[in-house]
Design a protein around this nucleic acid. Structure first.
Length: 290
DNA sequence: CACTTGACCTGTCCGC
DNA sequence: TGCGGACAGGTCAAGT
């Protein structure tokens, strides 16, 4: 589920709440969801929160880190207990988004923090994980992933030059499959890959070596725009995504193509088509994207 | 070697 | 209503 904008939305929300909190207990309800040694985290204090691609990290004062990958269905929900009632809203205003009681049948790990608050790691499909790693080894360990992560798309590291270099390592691969490769650029997933191809007016099936320099420039800009727009609307909620307070994201209301098959293109009114690219659902407007 | 498919899991939706 | 199959935001291993 969560791509860069969804993880970033969670990071922003959590950052105001967990810094300087101590981890009082860790309750692992599904053993495969937690990798590493929880005792190295226990009773230590959170000093920093960060994101790298789709990975979210918490650093602790003892040189250890907790990192999260939400894969397809993971959630990180912060809950602060207030006297008798529990609340996941800062002001206590109920919203329709947060029907679920916690913990629930998807809850895999519960972190109890100081100030009577908790972090719930929920994950229906059990693909996601939480790992304990030494902070100084994070980079060497590729943030818990097997491949080396590419540049952070919303930082200066994501220059046009580097993007072009990385793209051209995959000359014969389709554009969409290539930008989903986390070693080319970190954090782009299936939703924002379709969106970026639309914004750049590129057919996602087209091969990398068919792109002109001008199109590569457009695609580079389009990736940045799509991700920033996702963050602006608090991410995309299809079924599983909620932010750290249990609220939905609204990006899909503003999406050009994703999940809009048989609906009119927002640019030319032709109908949006759904195809498969690299085994993944892919949405496009054949009139706009060449 | 480059590229594709299936596995990992649980749940939902759709056609028959 | 039930059953089987396809599909779902990601990553990785195995297969071609």
């Amino acid at each position: 589920m969560p791509e860069l904008p969804e993880v970033e939305t969670i990071r922003i929300g959590l950052s105001q709440k967990v810094i300087n909190q101590q981890v009082l207990s860790i309750n692992i309800l599904n053993s495969k969801s937690f990798i590493g040694d929880p005792s190295k985290i226990l009773s230590h204090t959170i000093t920093n929160i960060w994101r790298r691609g789709k990975v979210l990290g918490l650093d602790l004062e003892n040189g250890q880190s907790l990192i999260f990958h939400l894969k397809m269905s993971g959630q990180i929900i912060f809950e602060k207990k207030q006297k008798n009632k529990r609340s996941r809203f800062s002001g206590g205003h109920p919203t329709k988004d947060m029907q679920q009681e916690l913990p629930n049948k998807s809850t895999r790990v519960i972190f109890t923090l100081s100030q009577d608050s908790r972090i719930y790691f929920n994950d229906q499909r059990k693909f996601g994980w939480v790992k304990q790693l030494k902070t100084s080894t994070l980079k060497k360990m590729n943030y818990g992933l097997k491949i080396k992560l590419g540049p952070e798309p919303l930082s200066r590291d994501f220059s046009l030059k580097i993007f072009k270099q990385n793209l051209l390592k995959h000359k014969n691969q389709s554009i969409k499959v290539t930008i989903l490769d986390q070693s080319v650029v970190a954090g782009v997933g299936n939703i924002y890959a379709s969106e970026a191809c639309f914004i750049a007016k590129i057919d996602p099936l087209k091969k990398v070596n068919q792109l002109t320099d001008k199109k590569i420039d457009k695609l580079h800009q389009a990736i940045i725009l799509a991700l920033n727009t996702g963050i602006k609307y608090g991410g995309s909620s299809i079924t599983h995504f909620f932010d750290d307070e249990g609220k939905k994201g609204y990006f899909l209301e503003y999406a050009y193509v994703f999940n809009r098959q048989h609906k009119p293109c927002k640019n030319c009114h032709n109908l949006i088509t759904k195809i498969k690219v690299g085994g993944r659902g892919t949405y496009l407007c054949y009139n706009c994207q060449k």
